[in-house]
């Protein structure tokens, strides 16, 4: 119960941050990505604010032996730079620039009933399922 409430609270807080920062407005996102046009630097400040807080809090939290509701921390351990990482990130940037939504703001705006975001989330869900099916079909060389 407390576990799920904490996850719900973290998700709700995350959405507040996205909405306040302007990430749920595709024109702000594309304004930031439009270096050659009427550049809107605002989203750089979103990253600065988020990293400033999480950089410090991450280090404070990790002094604990374990999180509050789990036996251990679950953090990524991979260090290799592979083609999947670079190609995946490159594709993500293309889609981000085309639609003005990344996954978090897309989900928040879809829940809020924005028609564009609903369409975006339908596409995103399909794209994820396709990638997962491809990954299952192709043997992994790792």
């Amino acid at each position: 119960m407390k576990r799920n409430a904490a996850a719900f609270g973290a998700g709700a807080l995350f959405a507040v941050g996205l909405a306040l920062s302007g990430m749920t407005r595709p024109s702000k996102v594309v304004g930031f990505l439009d270096l050659a046009g009427d550049w809107d630097a605002s989203l750089a400040f979103v990253m600065m604010g988020a990293i400033a807080v999480h950089f410090v809090a991450y280090r404070v939290v990790l002094r604990r032996p374990a999180p509050l509701f789990d036996g251990r921390f679950h953090l990524p351990t991979r260090k290799d730079i592979d083609l999947r990482l670079v190609l995946g990130a490159a594709l993500f940037g293309v889609g981000w620039g085309l639609g003005g939504y990344c996954p978090g703001p897309g989900l928040v705006s879809a829940a809020a009933g924005s028609p564009g975001a609903l369409v975006f989330v339908v596409g995103m869900t399909a794209g994820m399922l396709i990638e997962q099916a491809v990954a299952r079909a192709l043997p992994r060389r790792e």
Binding site: L87, L91, Y101, T125, M128
Partner: peptide, 14 residues
């Protein structure tokens, strides 16, 4: 927007 979603979904999983 639909195409953007498809690419974002595929790319972020990959």
């Amino acid at each position: 927007t639909l195409l953007a979603g498809l690419i974002v979904g595929f790319g972020t999983q990959l």
